[in-house]
């Protein structure tokens, strides 16, 4: 287990509309609870993305902010390689920025960093509401809970795997899948913030960046997970109705 982690929050002024700053807070809180000190570097518009941090986080943003973020990141020839080589979480607009391309509100396609083998388009209707998914090939991570508010879709190709299978909500808008896993990157449309509501996913990212972590349970967060899943997961509602 590392003694210290450097977490880079990429363009929080542009990619932070839906509370995704909370993902960085969740990571630092859970790391520090295990005695791992955290240094958070917020990368502003005029600053270069650091090359050698432990963990990178990108959040969601509105259309215009996303386009400015795309221009900024694409101007840095090395940023795709840096993010691809390190543990990275990308949420909503962040997911789209790491894809081959994405569409804006007028349907115009824009180039992404091409780090994920994913093409993002537009959903017919905006997806807004609670989401529940079952993680794919992540046995240590239980059902994921989050809130989606997006118009973007995500179609996965060859080397990209889904983060989860949709139980409730819309997700990627294709094949009942949600999010992406590829290499060191985990990407999702889930806000909430996703790492606050899903501490096991936060721990997965932390352990990939810092090595194995001791157990840590946060009763308040577990209560929040239970509340959200009780509301949004149709399987739980059925069980509740049937009395078991």
């Amino acid at each position: 287990m590392a003694d210290e982690l450097t977490i880079v929050h990429v363009l929080p002024d542009l990619l932070g509309t839906y509370g995704d700053r909370g993902n960085v807070l969740a990571l630092t809180h859970r790391a520090e609870a295990r005695g791992v000190a955290c240094r958070v570097v917020e990368v502003g518009l005029d600053e270069r993305v650091p090359r050698t941090a432990d963990l990178y986080v990108l959040g969601g943003g509105e259309d215009s902010a996303q386009l400015l973020a795309a221009r900024t990141l694409l101007a840095d020839d090395l940023v795709a390689a840096v993010l691809g080589a390190h543990t990275t979480l990308a949420v909503c607009a962040g997911l789209q920025l790491l894809a081959h391309g994405f569409e804006d509100s007028t349907g115009t396609r824009h180039q992404g960093l091409g780090l994920l083998d994913v093409e993002c388009g537009r959903l017919e209707e905006r997806a807004v509401g609670e989401v529940v998914t079952e993680p794919v090939d992540l046995p240590e991570v239980p059902s994921l809970t989050g809130y989606e508010n997006h118009r973007g879709s995500a179609r996965l190709h060859g080397s990209a795997r889904p983060l989860g299978r949709v139980v409730a909500g819309v997700g990627n808008g294709h094949d009942d899948l949600e999010g992406v896993q590829q290499g060191h990157v985990i990407a999702t449309y889930l806000h909430g913030p996703v790492l606050v509501r899903n501490p096991a996913l936060a721990d997965l990212l932390l352990s990939r960046a810092a090595g194995p972590l001791p157990e840590y349970e946060d009763p308040e967060v577990e209560e929040l997970r239970k509340e959200r899943l009780d509301v949004a997961d149709p399987r739980r509602r059925r069980r509740h109705l049937l009395g078991y």
Binding site: D20, V128, N149, P193
Partner: peptide
Amino acid sequence: GRDPSWLYD
């Protein structure tokens, strides 16, 4: 609003 994520802003 149905989504209280903004608490983290």
